[in-house]
Design a protein around this nucleic acid. Structure first.
Lengths: 340, 340
DNA sequence: AATTGGCAGTCACTAAACGCGAGTGCCAAA
DNA sequence: TTTGGCACTCGCGTTTAGTGACTGCCAATT
């Protein structure tokens, strides 16, 4: 059984290893920390920790390195939840203070988070799930091509191109536009879809086919409800920490660009007691990210819609600091976007 | 003076070096290509090419490598403009065939281009310059926060958040919305700005201050005219070609994420006779990209608005293939977005 | 004048050999 | 339970020597 001192040893091993990237040995522990015991004693504790698979020696005779399991214990039990420094808080204010539109806010957020953590940062766009239709706009691009723009009351904007078979004239478009807005404005997305389906009946028979075409596209657009957009920043940091990866970081970067993977990972992560969820190393193996750790937290945009943000980096990262940053940014963003 | 055969030698040096990453020597040239002369003769030609600073020997006794200037001559005079393969053309059709909205089309385009060239691909959003106001929408997010959405007739959508001092009621917002659209709908962006400035006068005195606030924000939004959005894909390819960079690729990745830099670089690149502009190595030094080459081409979206797309990679890249890909994708995209 | 074969010289790269130092495991004593 | 001591292991940096791929130059040839 691992003693209390044993856990303290694990803590300093994680801290020192994260700071120096050197496997940490018994001697350097007694030098750098005041345990009040000798190196030999520490060695005994380390043997215990190794038995529990919390640390491991990379080769027969060198210091120890935390295992995934060791990091897990560290994160769950040992990490100190120190608050952000004043400078960091100031950075958050500065970065997000005078922002204008949603795209801009999220772009700034992701940069900020990447800068605070020195890792890859990720921010998911808020969901449309609970929102209502604010306005539908049809923009003719050419005689047979229309762009439909879809605005929800929580500020998402969806646009889509659409080719129609017969040429459209402005008068007809105008009519269609006003009927669309009159019938579904203010409705929730689910109701909007059902109402839209009945719309073609309101038009002259010779128009119905083209109206149906447009309506079908709009319904798809509504149904898509895509929470599938992700912004990312700080991929350069992966290169900086390249030595923390056994092989190349190429597959990691590829997995990151494959946003579908990340969105899936995001959605599967639970929220822990501090609002930050941590997934370490092998826990991400199924996503091709077995050599990375991911920290996420949820944030709320207006309308109660939820989304996530977080950071991704090598397993050997500063969990204390990064968890604090993720939490702080998520909270600030929630406040900024209007908790309502 | 460099002879015709000398230029042929330069061509095969570039080709072989790009293919193998090995400095190419006189012996391997006569082995792999039928010049009908001996290695010693090739050596003489190479000495000439070196005098002209078109090639250089990395160390005293090894094969030659093209200089930036050598690549320049290759691109301008020697590269064969072979068309895309059938498979590549098919890939373009497949990728972009059934696309829906602008974001989606550009996201697909950038992935496609990255896949075709195996380099980092970049696509700039179309400009708003020549477009007209289609619709302005105001979305209340809370009692003192409004989102303004700005739709232009060429399909761009701009959104922006805005805090107002006094609470807004729905009736007033409705009035404001309809007046806004009545007064600037259909106008060009420049006129819209001037008309907007006169709008507060149409409101009751006690409303004017808040209207002014909103109008100022809208004018900014119009003036921003941001062609400043860029989508990117394939950064993993930079890692793959890491050995082609003398130091770390970290600063390169940083420069790429700093989109402002890239947009500036884009805007400074001219269009050459084949519609693809090439900037090689040191020519990009001022952007922190002195070890990369950038290929760009313009494309036209509807409304005649212009934007650029291109690829970025190490100087040692397959210019023939990548130029062809950039050109083909730019053309296809122009066709798809409606040349009008 | 252009081309060729020959030859000496340069230099990067690789493998093998070596010594150093950090760190461990174990054990007997406190 | 803790401690000091000791033999042992192994990664890592340095050195040395050998190999091979080139080049540049020169004198001879076409």
């Amino acid at each position: 059984m691992v003693s209390d001192r044993g856990l303290d040893v694990l803590r300093v091993i994680v801290q020192d290893y994260v700071a120096s990237r050197e496997p940490v040995g018994s001697k350097s522990i007694v030098e750098r920390h005041s345990f009040g015991v000798s190196a030999a004693t520490i060695r005994n504790d380390m043997a215990l920790l190794e038995e529990e698979e919390l640390i491991v020696a990379p080769h027969t005779s060198s210091g120890r390195v935390p295992t995934d399991k060791g990091y897990r214990v560290f994160v769950d039990q040992l990490a100190d939840h120190r608050p952000l420094t004043g400078a960091q808080k100031q950075a958050i204010e500065m970065f997000l203070g005078q922002s204008v539109d949603l795209d801009d806010v999220l772009a700034r957020t992701v940069r900020l988070l990447s800068q605070l953590t020195q890792q890859v940062a990720l921010v998911q766009y808020p969901s449309l799930a609970k929102s209502r239709v604010r306005h539908i706009e049809l923009v003719p691009l050419s005689s047979t091509r229309v762009m439909s723009v879809f605005i929800t009351d929580n500020g998402r904007v969806e646009q889509r191109l659409l080719d129609v078979t017969a040429p459209l004239d402005d008068v007809f478009l105008m009519e269609l536009r006003s009927k669309l807005n009159a019938s579904v404005g203010g409705l929730g997305l689910a109701e909007a879809a059902t109402v839209l389906a009945t719309l073609p009946e309101q038009f002259a028979v010779d128009r119905q086919s083209v109206v149906r075409l447009i309506v079908v596209s709009l319904i798809e657009q509504v149904a898509a409800n895509r929470q599938d957009k992700l912004v990312m920043a700080g991929t350069a940091n992966l290169v900086r920490t390249e030595e923390d990866f056994s092989g190349s970081i190429f597959p990691v970067l590829e997995a990151i660009e494959e946003q579908v993977t990340l969105l899936k990972l995001f959605s599967e992560m639970a929220v822990d007691q501090h609002g930050v969820s941590v997934s370490i190393g092998r826990e991400n193996a199924e996503f091709g990210l077995g050599e990375t750790s991911v920290l996420t937290s949820g944030y709320a945009a207006s309308g109660g819609s939820l989304a996530r943000l977080g950071v991704l980096g090598p397993i050997r990262m500063d969990y204390s600091n990064n968890m604090a940053a993720v939490r702080a940014v998520a909270r600030y963003l929630t406040r900024l976007l209007g908790e309502e």
